[in-house]
Design a protein around this nucleic acid. Structure first.
Length: 437
RNA sequence: GGAGAUGUCGCCUAGUCCGGUCGAGGGCGCACGAUUGGAAAUCGUGUAACUGCUACAAACAGUUCGAGGGUUCGAAUCCCUCCAUCUCCGCCA
């Protein structure tokens, strides 16, 4: 969300930015919001005059009453009452215009960083760098849920009966590996100086509407029946919600936080739930990182943050690459965004496992996340977020990239970093033989 | 979940019964000044945020006493709803 004053002063820049994102249909919004804001200020000025007058007269009435001059007080009352209707109308108009301005303000995209490549959609995203050699295995790699099945590690059928499509049971070594990854990722971030948080897994509607758009809410959030509560789609929701309408001392910056939570998503629309596998499901767990910092530091943190993701995946012997989102694929709130993608030797392609975003001051403006400087002046913070790891999705990469086959049975090497979290095991062995479908 | 109490300017607190002179008194803290060789102590002055106007100044105006709504010419003060905290009971992991 851009500053309304910035929009009014730089309409051409804002429009140019919209064109860069190929969102031409949003162009008229700029002039529209400026007109509405101008009208709002106008109405506000007139209403203020009336309010000033009312306050003045009301004070006089108080004095007159004190002096026992009832007649004069009554006359003054009539004077104010005459204006009451006009003021009420102006106040209604004021509120209406304010809502409209804010609505449009939220639809106008944030100014993207000059370094972001221009492109229409995700097909024009740009690979930045590859880390590690693409694993190439000389045996047939089963589909990831089939790998899990070899270890008696998954039961989607029962989950389907119990909860429906898009759910799963993880079991045995696979379930343990899932927890190991989460725990390892947690400690990894703690070692980087991030403060570990376990946030609320449900949030109020007032927070939901603050942290996401209406469309997102509709396609993602599960509502709790009969309560003003929603299941979180990511811990970012409750983590950033923590800072709504707060002022933080500059000396406490940067705030570097890492949070664990289960995530619940309807995944309505666009891609929907995939029938096979556990790539896109209704429930998963995620370790997240959040940084709140000074504006001048946000790009530095952006680079550090995606770097941490790369480092984490490399420490688990998973080849990754970074992909930069082009202007057209960048969400409205974002200034710059990298996806970290893991290599799938089965599919012979990279797939998204982390998404690192610099939101500039847009999120902070929307939510009132402010910093009090040394000089006492207040300004908006910059906010960033990134996935540390989101199993089970990352489990796919872990299993595929560390898979071994002895001609009869499959096994998975446990990367050194993960071994302490797996009770010291160096590998897990399949229980079942593989029968290709 | 039930009963009661509370929520005021960085912190503590007055004001709420009986609405007007309360955007709000006092103390602490903080800042500046006086005093001092220097310091402590003392004394004096100042001490919220947001918006509009504007020179991102001052002045002025508006809004804000947990949040939202209502009554009223006028609400910190009266009414309603919600939220949070504390105490007791219940229920639990």
């Amino acid at each position: 969300m851009l500053d309304i004053r910035f929009i009014c002063e730089n309409p051409d820049l804002v429009k140019e930015n919209i064109r860069k994102k190929f969102k031409e249909d949003k162009l008229p919004l700029v002039d529209e919001v400026i007109a509405l804001y101008t009208e709002k200020k106008d109405v506000n000025t007139r209403a203020n005059d009336l309010r000033a007058n009312r306050n003045k007269v009301s004070k006089q009435i108080g004095v007159l009453m004190g002096q026992g001059k009832r007649e004069e007080a009554e006359a003054a009352k009539r004077l104010v009452t005459e204006q009451a209707e006009e003021l009420a109308a102006l106040e209604a108009k004021e509120a209406e215009l304010e809502t409209k301005v804010r609505e449009i303000q939220m639809k106008i995209p944030n100014i993207v960083d000059p370094s972001v490549p221009v492109g229409k959609d995700d097909s024009e995203n740009v690979e930045v760098e590859q880390f590690g050699e693409q694993t190439d295995l000389d045996f047939e790699i089963p589909y990831h849920t089939d790998i899990m099945a070899l270890f008696n590690g998954i039961d989607k059928e029962s989950a389907g009966r119990v909860a429906g499509e898009g759910f799963y049971y993880l079991m045995g070594d696979i379930a343990r590996m899932h927890s190991a990854v989460t725990a390892y990722a947690r400690d990894f971030m703690i070692d980087k100086g991030f403060i570990y948080h376990i946030p609320p897994f449900m949030i109020r509607s007032s927070v939901v509407t603050g942290v996401m758009s209406f469309e997102e809410m509709d396609s993602m959030m599960y509502k709790i029946e009969g309560e003003d509560l929603y299941l979180i789609g990511t811990s970012e929701h409750s983590m950033i919600g923590k800072f709504i309408d707060t002022i933080t001392d500059e000396s406490k910056l940067p705030l570097t936080l890492t949070s664990y939570s289960p995530c619940f998503r309807k995944e309505k629309g666009a891609h929907g739930i995939e029938e096979r596998g556990i790539y896109r499901i209704h429930q998963f767990e995620k370790q997240e990182m959040i940084v709140i910092c000074k504006p001048e530091d946000s790009m530095k943190w952006f680079d550090k943050m995606w770097g941490y993701s790369v480092e984490l995946f490399r420490s688990l012997d998973i080849p990754v690459r970074t992909l930069e989102c082009c202007t057209g694929d960048l969400a409205d709130l974002k200034v710059k965004s990298y996806d970290v993608e893991a290599w799938s030797p089965k599919q012979k392609k990279y797939f998204e496992v982390c998404s690192c975003s610099n939101l500039g001051d847009a999120q902070a403006r929307r939510l009132g996340i402010r910093i009090k400087g040394e000089d006492g002046k207040k300004y908006l913070a910059h906010t960033l977020n990134n996935t540390v790891v989101a199993p089970p999705r990352m489990l796919i990469a872990l299993l595929e990239n560390n898979l071994c086959f002895d001609g009869e049975y499959y096994s998975v090497k446990i990367p050194k970093a993960l071994q302490p979290y797996m009770g010291g095991k160096t590998e897990i062995k399949a229980i079942n033989k593989y029968n290709p479908r």
